[in-house]
């Protein structure tokens, strides 16, 4: 397995990762109901802190007792085989699951100590603070400008037209899309290429300056060059934002993230610094997955 991610020693120290109890099973590939996540799932400077979260679709349980912290300004990657619940878990973090009929979330999810599932919390405000980028690029069928300006407009962030113009330009620059679209801001966002559309979606998400950005397989519909650009972008964005990214590609996880969480059948198996996950995973299941034995 080739390692490309660069993990700063500073980052490591900054996160001051604690080690957890390691559980040994009789057969390492069995996960029992009493499974406990191995690795460093807690951090000191947690932006988001998830404790004992269960997610159900109707009667079917999709996420089992997941606990993990997401550190400030870190990029955490979530990997795992199809249907393992990583997207479901991600969507629990900005309550997008609320929109799914019959979906129920139990447990404790906090951002800066604030309970995200408290009845007092306003979900509209939450989603302004926790932005999301989806698997398939989904720009609104409006102009590029209107796409980016939409968030600031509905949240009333811009006082004047000039403010709004500035916000749009800044967001597009941060999404490294400005140079490509500055001459056609008023053309349809849907006319861009797939990779540009996805960067437009990222620009749209960061236009409201969220604290956390959730990315649900943002590159799965893109070609390798577009993917590389998005990955560069993620690295730049991580200076200002906390990013949780679900990905199908282990290489991508290795390239962009500081920590990697491995999900299996709705359970969080292991969370460790990315380098460690891809070189000496703690859990036998993780090892099987990254060496390609299933997935």
């Amino acid at each position: 397995m080739q390692k490309t991610a660069t993990l700063d020693a500073d980052d490591m120290a900054d996160s001051s990762i604690k080690s957890s109890v390691k559980v040994t099973n009789a057969n390492p590939l069995d996960i029992t109901d009493e499974h406990v996540t191995v690795g460093s799932y807690e951090v000191n400077n947690a932006k988001m802190s998830i404790k004992n979260v269960n997610v159900y679709y109707g009667d079917k349980q999709a996420i089992f007792d997941v606990s993990v912290d997401i550190g400030k300004n870190e990029v955490i990657a979530m990997i795992g085989p199809s249907g393992c619940g990583k997207s479901t878990f991600l969507r629990a973090l900005n309550r997008m699951n609320d929109t799914v009929d019959g979906c129920r979330v139990e447990g404790d999810i906090r951002m800066d100590g604030q309970d995200l599932y408290s009845p007092k919390l306003d979900v509209v405000e939450l989603r302004a603070r926790v932005g999301m980028v989806f698997q398939k690029p989904n720009p609104f069928p409006k102009s590029i400008y209107d796409n980016v300006a939409y968030g600031p407009k509905i949240h009333g962030l811009a006082d004047t037209r000039v403010d709004l113009d500035e916000m749009v330009e800044r967001s597009l620059r941060r999404a490294s899309l400005w140079d490509e679209v500055k001459d056609r801001l008023y053309q349809a966002g849907t006319g861009l290429s797939g990779g540009q559309q996805q960067r437009l979606c990222i620009a749209r998400a960061i236009a409201v300056s969220p604290e956390v950005i959730l990315m649900d397989e943002p590159c799965s519909a893109l070609d390798p060059i577009a993917t590389a650009r998005i990955e560069e972008l993620i690295e730049e964005l991580s200076q200002n934002f906390t990013i949780a990214i679900v990905t199908h590609s282990m290489q991508q996880a290795a390239r962009v993230s500081q920590r990697t969480a491995y999900f299996h059948l709705g359970k969080l198996i292991e969370v460790n610094p990315t380098e460690q996950v891809f070189t000496m995973p703690e859990h036998a299941l993780t090892e099987s997955y990254i060496t390609g034995r299933f997935g």
């Binding site: 900005n94 997008m96 929109t99 509209v124 405000e125 939450l126 989603r127 302004a128 932005g131 999301m132 989806f134 398939k136 989904n138 720009p139 609104f140 069928p141 939409y150 968030g151 509905i154 949240h155 979606c201 749209r204 998400a205 409201v208």
Partner: peptide, 21 residues
Amino acid sequence: PPSIREAALGMGASRNQMVLH
């Protein structure tokens, strides 16, 4: 398409805004 709804909700639009916009 549901992706448009998700995009709007994900941006923090209320349901009403999602429908009207």
